[in-house]
Amino acid sequence: MKVLVAVKRVIDYNVKIRVKSDNTGVETANVKMSMNPFDEIAVEEAIRLKEAGKADEVVVVSMGEKKCQETIRTALAMGGDRGILVETDEDLQPLAVAKILKGIVEKENPDMIILGKQAIDDDNGQTGQMLAALLGWPQGTFASKVELGDGSVNVTREVDGGLQTVKLSLPAIVTSDLRLNEPRYAALPNIMKAKKKPLDTVSPADFGVDVTPRLKVLKVEEPAARSAGVKVDSVAQLVDKLKNEAKVI
């Protein structure tokens, strides 16, 4: 069984995000970049399937500038077998990513694709679902447990109000939630091995995908600073404020 994992290079979760002074986006120069934490969980899950003898190969895909190679190498150091970088300087939106992934899937024929449920930079949470629609494959999103069966996979999903378990026939798409597993630290010998693992570089054009953004960012602003609170004199006044000022009841 072959598992494909998609990983995104994002601003490290520890970094305090700063909005660019011209409001076109967030500052990325001189900012630490890492693998999207949800994708790390996806990689870990794929490697565990391999270690359990249930998968034979874990292929790691990333898209974006050349430096995404580092993100792929990180996944290979954790235990992935080989990498594919789709190199482009274009700003990739979820639909474009899903279309390129579809092209890769058609070439690689994996039995399962694991993605993070969302990336912590844009927080779209769309790629997995779009890819499932494009491929016509079943999807198990927000997975907190993945149990592989014979030709199928049971995915426990974190949904509002509890857990839902779905059975998907393979090939299928799984997107990982935080509680699926705890990703490992890469061991030194594996970091050294990762350097020698195959990593192919391709371009969106190889899949005939037009990656031109469909959405235009008009403006990026910091959230308004929190202002000081006020003391209310009575419950009646509180209700009044909630109703007429905050308009929440």
Binding site: S34, E70, R73, T74, A77, Y185, A186, L188, I191, M192, A194, K195
Partner: peptide, 18 residues
């Protein structure tokens, strides 16, 4: 010979994490 920049940097990153 192994200590090329593309190996050393991930080593530093992983050491940082641990």
């Amino acid at each position: 010979e192994e200590a090329t920049r593309d190996l050393v940097e991930p080593i530093l990153e992983e050491a940082a994490k641990i």
